[in-house]
Protein backbone atom coordinates (compact mmCIF):
# COMPACT_ATOMS: atom_id res chain seq x y z
CA UNK A 1 0.00 0.00 0.00
CA UNK A 2 1.33 3.41 -0.95
CA UNK A 3 0.70 6.23 1.41
CA UNK A 4 -0.27 8.43 -1.50
CA UNK A 5 -3.24 6.17 -2.09
CA UNK A 6 -4.10 6.28 1.53
CA UNK A 7 -7.41 7.97 1.80
CA UNK A 8 -8.55 10.54 4.29
CA UNK A 9 -11.33 8.16 5.30
CA UNK A 10 -8.79 5.51 6.26
CA UNK A 11 -7.04 7.84 8.66
CA UNK A 12 -10.35 8.88 10.14
CA UNK A 13 -11.29 5.24 10.60
CA UNK A 14 -8.00 4.38 12.29
CA UNK A 15 -8.34 7.37 14.61
CA UNK A 16 -11.82 6.32 15.55
CA UNK A 17 -10.73 2.74 16.09
CA UNK A 18 -7.86 3.87 18.30
CA UNK A 19 -10.01 6.13 20.41
CA UNK A 20 -12.65 3.42 20.66
CA UNK A 21 -9.88 1.05 21.75
CA UNK A 22 -9.00 3.48 24.55
CA UNK A 23 -12.63 3.56 25.64
CA UNK A 24 -12.88 -0.21 25.73
CA UNK A 25 -9.51 -0.36 27.48
CA UNK A 26 -10.62 1.91 30.32
CA UNK A 27 -13.83 -0.09 30.72
CA UNK A 28 -11.86 -3.32 30.73
CA UNK A 29 -9.33 -2.11 33.29
CA UNK A 30 -12.08 -0.74 35.50
CA UNK A 31 -13.85 -4.10 35.39
CA UNK A 32 -10.74 -6.13 36.10
CA UNK A 33 -9.61 -3.67 38.81
CA UNK A 34 -6.09 -4.66 37.90
CA UNK A 35 -3.67 -3.98 35.05
CA UNK A 36 -1.59 -1.22 33.50
CA UNK A 37 -3.08 2.03 32.19
CA UNK A 38 -0.47 4.43 30.83
CA UNK A 39 1.48 2.25 28.38
CA UNK A 40 -1.63 0.63 26.85
CA UNK A 41 -3.32 4.02 26.31
CA UNK A 42 -0.16 5.31 24.67
CA UNK A 43 0.12 2.33 22.34
CA UNK A 44 -3.45 2.29 21.00
CA UNK A 45 -2.47 3.95 17.71
CA UNK A 46 0.50 1.64 17.17
CA UNK A 47 -1.57 -1.51 17.80
CA UNK A 48 -4.45 -0.32 15.61
CA UNK A 49 -2.01 0.50 12.80
CA UNK A 50 -0.45 -2.94 13.11
CA UNK A 51 -3.61 -5.03 13.32
CA UNK A 52 -5.64 -3.03 10.79
CA UNK A 53 -3.05 -1.95 8.23
CA UNK A 54 0.37 -3.54 8.61
CA UNK A 55 0.18 -7.19 9.65
CA UNK A 56 -0.78 -9.65 6.94
CA UNK A 57 -2.83 -12.12 8.92
CA UNK A 58 -6.28 -13.58 9.30
CA UNK A 59 -7.92 -13.19 12.73
CA UNK A 60 -10.11 -16.20 11.97
CA UNK A 61 -7.07 -18.36 11.21
CA UNK A 62 -4.51 -17.24 13.77
CA UNK A 63 -2.23 -20.26 13.26
CA UNK A 64 -1.89 -19.84 9.51
CA UNK A 65 1.75 -20.45 8.68
CA UNK A 66 1.90 -17.63 6.16
CA UNK A 67 0.98 -14.98 8.73
CA UNK A 68 3.14 -12.07 9.75
CA UNK A 69 4.19 -12.37 13.39
CA UNK A 70 3.91 -9.66 16.01
CA UNK A 71 6.06 -10.30 19.07
CA UNK A 72 5.28 -8.15 22.07
CA UNK A 73 8.27 -7.92 24.36
CA UNK A 74 6.71 -5.59 26.93
CA UNK A 75 3.93 -7.99 27.85
CA UNK A 76 2.44 -5.71 30.49
CA UNK A 77 0.82 -3.60 27.75
CA UNK A 78 -1.30 -6.60 26.71
CA UNK A 79 -4.66 -5.04 27.70
CA UNK A 80 -4.48 -2.81 24.62
CA UNK A 81 -3.33 -5.72 22.49
CA UNK A 82 -6.34 -7.75 23.68
CA UNK A 83 -8.69 -4.84 22.97
CA UNK A 84 -7.38 -4.29 19.45
CA UNK A 85 -7.34 -8.03 18.76
CA UNK A 86 -10.99 -8.20 19.72
CA UNK A 87 -11.70 -5.22 17.45
CA UNK A 88 -9.93 -7.04 14.64
CA UNK A 89 -12.04 -10.14 15.24
CA UNK A 90 -9.72 -12.58 17.01
CA UNK A 91 -12.26 -13.15 19.76
CA UNK A 92 -15.56 -11.66 20.95
CA UNK A 93 -15.31 -8.33 22.71
CA UNK A 94 -17.28 -9.60 25.70
CA UNK A 95 -14.37 -11.85 26.60
CA UNK A 96 -12.41 -8.74 27.60
CA UNK A 97 -14.39 -8.81 30.85
CA UNK A 98 -12.37 -11.86 31.88
CA UNK A 99 -9.03 -9.99 31.83
CA UNK A 100 -6.85 -11.11 34.74
CA UNK A 101 -9.67 -13.26 36.15
CA UNK A 102 -9.46 -16.95 37.01
CA UNK A 103 -9.78 -19.41 34.08
CA UNK A 104 -9.37 -16.62 31.52
CA UNK A 105 -7.49 -16.76 28.25
CA UNK A 106 -6.59 -13.13 28.86
CA UNK A 107 -3.77 -13.53 31.34
CA UNK A 108 -2.27 -10.54 33.15
CA UNK A 109 0.74 -11.00 30.92
CA UNK A 110 0.07 -12.64 27.56
CA UNK A 111 0.21 -16.41 27.24
CA UNK A 112 0.51 -17.88 23.77
CA UNK A 113 -0.73 -21.29 24.85
CA UNK A 114 -3.91 -19.75 26.17
CA UNK A 115 -4.85 -17.29 23.45
CA UNK A 116 -4.47 -18.06 19.72
CA UNK A 117 -3.01 -15.02 17.98
CA UNK A 118 -0.56 -14.26 20.77
CA UNK A 119 2.84 -15.13 19.29
CA UNK A 120 4.95 -15.11 22.43
CA UNK A 121 4.30 -15.43 26.14
CA UNK A 122 5.75 -12.31 27.61
CA UNK A 123 6.29 -10.52 30.89
CA UNK A 124 9.93 -10.53 31.96
CA UNK A 125 11.34 -7.69 29.87
CA UNK A 126 13.84 -8.36 27.11
CA UNK A 127 12.56 -11.80 26.21
CA UNK A 128 10.26 -11.00 23.30
CA UNK A 129 12.90 -9.29 21.22
CA UNK A 130 15.21 -12.31 21.36
CA UNK A 131 12.40 -14.55 20.20
CA UNK A 132 11.56 -12.14 17.38
CA UNK A 133 15.23 -12.34 16.35
CA UNK A 134 15.14 -16.14 16.30
CA UNK A 135 11.99 -16.16 14.16
CA UNK A 136 13.42 -13.53 11.79
CA UNK A 137 16.61 -15.58 11.46
CA UNK A 138 14.56 -18.51 10.14
CA UNK A 139 12.65 -16.18 7.79
CA UNK A 140 15.92 -14.93 6.35
CA UNK A 141 17.71 -18.29 6.07
CA UNK A 142 14.75 -20.06 4.53
CA UNK A 143 13.78 -17.09 2.34
CA UNK A 144 10.23 -17.02 3.69
CA UNK A 145 7.80 -14.20 2.95
CA UNK A 146 6.43 -13.55 6.44
CA UNK A 147 7.50 -10.38 8.22
CA UNK A 148 8.44 -10.28 11.87
CA UNK A 149 7.48 -7.29 14.04
CA UNK A 150 8.37 -6.66 17.64
CA UNK A 151 7.16 -4.04 20.09
CA UNK A 152 9.48 -3.21 22.97
CA UNK A 153 9.26 -0.58 25.67
CA UNK A 154 11.89 2.08 26.29
CA UNK A 155 12.65 0.86 29.81
CA UNK A 156 13.38 -2.49 28.21
CA UNK A 157 16.74 -1.02 27.23
CA UNK A 158 17.61 -1.37 30.93
CA UNK A 159 17.75 -5.12 30.33
CA UNK A 160 21.02 -6.51 29.05
CA UNK A 161 19.17 -9.07 26.97
CA UNK A 162 17.74 -6.30 24.77
CA UNK A 163 21.25 -5.27 23.76
CA UNK A 164 22.29 -8.88 23.19
CA UNK A 165 19.35 -9.23 20.82
CA UNK A 166 20.04 -5.95 19.01
CA UNK A 167 23.67 -6.93 18.38
CA UNK A 168 22.40 -10.19 16.93
CA UNK A 169 19.81 -8.43 14.75
CA UNK A 170 22.40 -6.02 13.37
CA UNK A 171 24.95 -8.77 12.73
CA UNK A 172 22.47 -10.80 10.69
CA UNK A 173 20.61 -7.84 9.11
CA UNK A 174 17.40 -9.58 10.15
CA UNK A 175 14.14 -8.97 8.27
CA UNK A 176 12.68 -7.52 11.42
CA UNK A 177 10.86 -4.32 12.33
CA UNK A 178 11.21 -3.26 15.95
CA UNK A 179 8.86 -0.61 17.32
CA UNK A 180 10.03 1.10 20.50
CA UNK A 181 7.39 2.60 22.74
CA UNK A 182 9.32 5.72 23.71
CA UNK A 183 6.96 7.05 26.35
CA UNK A 184 9.69 8.16 28.77
CA UNK A 185 8.20 6.51 31.83
CA UNK A 186 8.72 3.30 33.73
CA UNK A 187 7.23 1.90 36.89
CA UNK A 188 9.08 4.01 39.48
CA UNK A 189 9.75 7.19 37.53
CA UNK A 190 10.79 8.89 34.32
CA UNK A 191 13.19 6.83 32.25
CA UNK A 192 15.80 9.57 32.28
CA UNK A 193 15.76 9.59 36.09
CA UNK A 194 15.66 5.83 36.66
CA UNK A 195 18.25 4.94 34.02
CA UNK A 196 19.00 7.53 31.34
CA UNK A 197 18.73 6.30 27.76
CA UNK A 198 19.47 9.43 25.76
CA UNK A 199 20.88 9.85 23.23
CA UNK A 200 18.87 6.73 22.34
CA UNK A 201 18.79 7.27 18.59
CA UNK A 202 22.56 7.68 18.39
CA UNK A 203 23.11 4.58 20.50
CA UNK A 204 20.95 2.51 18.19
CA UNK A 205 22.57 3.99 15.10
CA UNK A 206 25.95 3.05 16.50
CA UNK A 207 24.77 -0.58 16.46
CA UNK A 208 24.38 -0.26 12.67
CA UNK A 209 20.63 -0.63 12.79
CA UNK A 210 18.40 1.49 10.55
CA UNK A 211 16.80 3.90 12.98
CA UNK A 212 13.58 5.79 12.29
CA UNK A 213 11.54 8.13 14.46
CA UNK A 214 7.81 8.65 14.28
CA UNK A 215 5.02 10.30 16.20
CA UNK A 216 3.52 7.20 17.78
CA UNK A 217 0.05 8.69 17.53
CA UNK A 218 0.26 9.37 13.79
CA UNK A 219 -1.08 6.34 11.97
CA UNK A 220 0.14 7.53 8.59
CA UNK A 221 3.71 7.88 9.82
CA UNK A 222 3.69 4.50 11.56
CA UNK A 223 2.30 2.68 8.53
CA UNK A 224 4.54 4.41 6.03
CA UNK A 225 7.74 3.74 8.00
CA UNK A 226 6.74 0.10 8.54
CA UNK A 227 6.12 -0.30 4.81
CA UNK A 228 9.51 1.18 3.97
CA UNK A 229 11.14 -1.11 6.52
CA UNK A 230 9.97 -4.15 4.54
CA UNK A 231 12.14 -3.02 1.63
CA UNK A 232 15.11 -2.33 3.87
CA UNK A 233 17.82 -5.01 3.77
CA UNK A 234 18.73 -4.11 7.34
CA UNK A 235 16.82 -4.43 10.61
CA UNK A 236 14.72 -1.32 11.18
CA UNK A 237 14.11 0.02 14.66
CA UNK A 238 11.42 2.67 14.91
CA UNK A 239 11.38 4.97 17.90
CA UNK A 240 7.70 5.69 18.38
CA UNK A 241 7.31 8.83 20.47
CA UNK A 242 4.17 8.26 22.49
CA UNK A 243 2.38 9.96 25.34
CA UNK A 244 1.76 7.54 28.18
CA UNK A 245 -1.87 7.77 29.25
CA UNK A 246 -2.75 9.37 25.88
CA UNK A 247 -6.30 10.66 25.69
CA UNK A 248 -6.92 10.91 29.41
CA UNK A 249 -5.72 14.29 30.66
CA UNK A 250 -4.99 13.31 34.24
CA UNK A 251 -3.01 10.23 33.19
CA UNK A 252 -0.91 11.73 30.41
CA UNK A 253 2.85 11.71 31.04
CA UNK A 254 2.42 10.54 34.63
CA UNK A 255 4.58 7.56 35.52
CA UNK A 256 2.30 6.97 38.51
CA UNK A 257 -0.19 5.53 36.00
CA UNK A 258 2.27 2.97 34.66
CA UNK A 259 1.07 0.02 36.67
CA UNK A 260 -2.39 0.71 38.07
CA UNK A 261 -5.97 0.68 36.78
CA UNK A 262 -8.45 3.54 37.25
CA UNK A 263 -10.98 3.25 40.08
CA UNK A 264 -14.66 3.71 39.32
CA UNK A 265 -14.64 7.48 39.60
CA UNK A 266 -11.42 7.87 37.62
CA UNK A 267 -12.74 5.56 34.93
CA UNK A 268 -15.92 7.65 34.61
CA UNK A 269 -13.86 10.81 34.22
CA UNK A 270 -11.55 9.17 31.68
CA UNK A 271 -14.48 7.87 29.66
CA UNK A 272 -16.10 11.32 29.57
CA UNK A 273 -12.97 12.69 27.93
CA UNK A 274 -12.66 9.80 25.52
CA UNK A 275 -16.33 9.93 24.50
CA UNK A 276 -15.98 13.66 23.86
CA UNK A 277 -12.99 12.90 21.62
CA UNK A 278 -14.97 10.20 19.82
CA UNK A 279 -17.75 12.70 19.08
CA UNK A 280 -15.20 15.17 17.73
CA UNK A 281 -13.64 12.52 15.47
CA UNK A 282 -16.95 11.58 13.95
Amino acid sequence: MHVSKFRFNDVKRLKLLSNQARIILIETLATSKSGHSAGPLGLADVFVSLYFKILKNNPKKPSLNSRDRLFVSNGHVCPIQYVVMSQAGYFPQKELKTLRKINSRLQGHPSRKDLPGIENSSGPLGQGISQACGAAFVIKKEKLKQRIYCIISDAEFNEGQTWEALLFAAKNKLPLTILVDRNNIQITGNTEDVMPLEPLKQKLMALNLTVEEVDGHNHLQIISVCNNAKKNKNTTIIICHTIPGKGVSFMENKYEWHGKPPNEQEARKALEELYAEQAKLR
Binding site: R69, F71, E119, N120, G126, Q127, I129, S130, Q131, A132, C133, G134, A135, A136, F137, V138, I139, K141, G160, Q161, E164, A165, L167, F168
Partner: peptide, 23 residues
Protein backbone atom coordinates in the same frame (compact mmCIF):
# COMPACT_ATOMS: atom_id res chain seq x y z
CA UNK B 1 23.22 -22.22 7.14
CA UNK B 2 21.44 -23.83 10.08
CA UNK B 3 24.07 -22.88 12.63
CA UNK B 4 23.31 -19.78 14.68
CA UNK B 5 26.08 -17.97 16.56
CA UNK B 6 24.79 -15.60 19.24
CA UNK B 7 28.12 -14.80 20.88
CA UNK B 8 28.63 -14.70 24.62
CA UNK B 9 24.99 -13.95 25.35
CA UNK B 10 23.12 -16.77 27.04
CA UNK B 11 19.86 -14.90 27.60
CA UNK B 12 19.67 -14.19 23.91
CA UNK B 13 20.81 -17.77 23.19
CA UNK B 14 17.68 -19.13 24.84
CA UNK B 15 15.43 -16.45 23.37
CA UNK B 16 16.70 -16.91 19.82
CA UNK B 17 16.32 -20.68 20.15
CA UNK B 18 12.72 -20.19 21.31
CA UNK B 19 12.03 -17.89 18.35
CA UNK B 20 13.42 -20.53 16.00
CA UNK B 21 11.18 -23.10 17.66
CA UNK B 22 8.18 -20.81 17.08
CA UNK B 23 8.88 -21.13 13.35
Amino acid sequence: ERFVEVGVAEQNLMGVACGISLM
